[in-house]
Design a protein around this nucleic acid. Structure first.
Lengths: 232, 232
DNA sequence: CGTAGCCTTGAAGGTGATCAATGTTTGTGG
DNA sequence: CCACAAACATTGATCACCTTCAAGGCTACG
């Protein structure tokens, strides 16, 4: 950890994100006005569904899951947010409460920006609006992709999810999923029972296609996983 | 049908939509520049998934379904677009081909605007971008709502869909769904088999909860449908 | 008046859910 | 550092729900 002025150091880090590409230092300072970095421990809650939406965040490190409670007790995971993602920003414009709960997956870090800054600086900035649009659009595409497989057998849907997440990998170690993931979370993301997920993935483990080490899933044979999706 | 100058008449009609609320006549003319009204017959295709995205549309009358082909032969419906909706606009910014196929449900009418107008007038307009954002956001909410019910029994998911669509009703006849809908389309929207949908809805028909007349579904007992979603 | 699209019904079968019990790892506090 | 709790992974048995396949009827429309 370099021992820099905290605010300045973080602004340097943030300026590298796609969301802020090509913006001047001065503009960036306005856009981030009033923001603070925040650390979260594993399973710590950033905000609850139903809370008044008073801030939004840029993910810097680790990962957060966006979760919706279901009528039954169990949760449904709507999105996995990884570094560079913005969470909670989409609701800023509407004046409604948060629609989902955000929970850290492993130790994570984000930059938390007050709602007032959104209204003053973000809402009227065409470029930012365009980029938020692009985020929303890609999230929608992911959901639709998965929905398209709703009639496919479970092993295909799991394979699809793993590959989706693997695609987010940046740089080195491109065989390990970029976020710690339990079988329960995979099940919650697909809307199926844990046991079903376990049965599928246990088989893959025995076949040597994947390996799990403390919630970190390694894809040993991506080619075989791809094959699973394609088969009849 | 009043016999007015076509362009002017339609601009009058369009100016009433939420998307363009509060815009001046002059600005509206710029925004709609190069656009043409277009009629579609039942089942006629507005554009195909994979086609180069050269235009987008505002729905004026009737309805369009946005469809994704699945690996198997069958289709999956990702959205029902009704009057006031914009379709194809979200992909304009990305330079990619259309991600879905748009098909008219019953005789329908839309206003088709060239991509160039989007780039010249829409992309740089903060207000329009905000409103497109809001559209995207509400579509996302609908999909998530439905995904939240993925583990619920089928009759609850069908009930949820019907109520979602009933909510779009504008004014009179608030018991009849605002678009002609086949059982096949309900099945394609939920990602289940037609026969399953039929079995559920036939029972409801016999119980007098719904009634179907040439693809127009009437909800006779909304209260009972609501009850179904809540039970256990 | 025939075809195409849509609806219906029945029988058989499979996939994944549920329930229950147990093992394993991680994290916490004395 | 140990003990205990909590979270996570696993396995088996049973069963319900939905799918699939097949056959037939109804209605709209050219």
């Amino acid at each position: 950890m370099p021992n820099l002025n905290s605010t300045e150091f973080i602004q340097n880090e943030i300026s590298g994100l796609a969301l802020f590409k090509g913006m001047s230092k001065e503009r960036l300072a306005e856009i981030l006005n009033g923001g603070v970095p925040r650390m979260h421990k594993h399973r710590q809650v950033l905000y609850h569904a139903g809370d008044e939406a008073q801030s939004f965040s840029v993910v810097l490190e680790g990962a957060y899951k966006l979760v919706r409670p279901t009528p039954r007790g169990d949760d449904l995971i709507v999105y996995f947010a990884t570094p560079g993602d913005v969470i909670g920003a989409l609701v800023m414009g509407s004046g409604k409460p948060y629609p989902v709960t955000a929970i850290a997956m492993g130790p994570s870090r984000c930059y938390l920006i007050p709602r007032s800054t959104f209204q003053k600086e973000w809402a009227g900035d065409v470029l930012l609006q365009q980029r938020l649009n692009a985020f929303l659009y890609s999230r929608m595409s992911l959901i639709q992709d998965e929905k398209t497989m709703s009639r496919a057998p479970l092993h295909q849907r799991i394979a699809n999810l793993l590959l989706q997440l693997l695609d987010r990998n940046t740089g080195e170690n491109d065989q390990i999923l970029p976020l710690p993931l339990t079988r329960q979370e995979i099940a919650d993301s697909l809307g199926v029972a844990v046991e079903s997920v376990i049965r599928v993935m246990s088989e893959w483990s025995h076949l040597g296609m994947i390996r799990t080490n403390d919630r970190h899933i390694e894809i040993l044979r991506p080619d075989q996983i791809v094959e699973i999706i394609k088969e009849s």
